[in-house]
Structures are given as C-alpha cells and as structure tokens.
C-alpha cells in the first residue's frame, strides 16, 4: 500500500500539472503529509507488530481521510476542469 500511495499521488500530481491546477502546491503538501503518516504507521507496525488495535486505528484513519480528501480536495479539481472547459 505504501508503494501504491506514492504511485497514485504521483499520477494525480502529474495530472494537476498538466491542467495547470492553481491549488497544486496545497494539494501536494496534503499528499506529502499523508505519505508521512502512512510511513509512520508502517514503522510502528514493523516495530511493535501487527496488533489488532493498530490495524483498526489505521483502517479508520484511512477511511476517513479518503472520504474527506476525495469528497473535498479532489472534487475541487473536477470543478476547476469543468469551469475551464466551460470557458473554452
């Protein structure tokens, strides 16, 4: 999953560059913070073992982050693209 997070974010950031998305730096920072958090979880899991409690905590964190990020931040990209298409 650590690999996929990086792969997916890189892809999305490339797309944002292509469309000249104005909020790209903010969005990149949010991605970077999330990557750090995932790495921190990976470190804890490696060091302390895969306890049920930690896995549940990570699951909940992933779920809420994704709902919020896709629902709010990614939605803004869609709105930008739509508005831009409207102008062209």
């Amino acid at each position: 999953m650590q690999e996929y997070v990086v792969y997916h974010f890189d892809d999305e950031e490339r797309y944002q560059e292509e469309i000249n998305y104005p909020d790209i730096e903010v969005h990149k920072r949010v991605h970077a913070e999330f990557k750090e958090e995932i790495n921190e979880y990976a470190r804890i899991l490696e060091e302390e073992g895969f306890t049920e409690e930690k896995i549940q905590e990570l699951g909940a964190r992933l779920m809420t982050w994704l709902i919020m990020h896709v629902g709010k931040a990614d939605q803004k990209i869609g709105e930008y693209v739509k508005a831009r298409e409207g102008v062209q």
């Binding site: 409690e53 549940q56 905590e57 699951g59 909940a60 964190r61 809420t64 982050w65 709902i67 919020m68």
Partner: peptide, 27 residues
C-alpha cells in the same frame, strides 16, 4: 455513522469505530 462510511455492519464500539469517530470530530 461508521456503517455509512465503511459500508460494513458495526456491532460494537471497537477501536475502528472509536478511531473513526475521533477522526470525524478532528476534521
């Protein structure tokens, strides 16, 4: 609330549910 977010039936307030609630409040 957690059922709506996860699509899974939740039977009791376990770590998953309490972490999710904590995150919602945090957001």
């Amino acid at each position: 609330m957690v059922k709506i977010m996860s699509g899974m039936e939740m039977k009791k307030i376990d770590t998953f549910v309490s972490s999710a609630l904590g995150e919602v409040a945090n957001i």
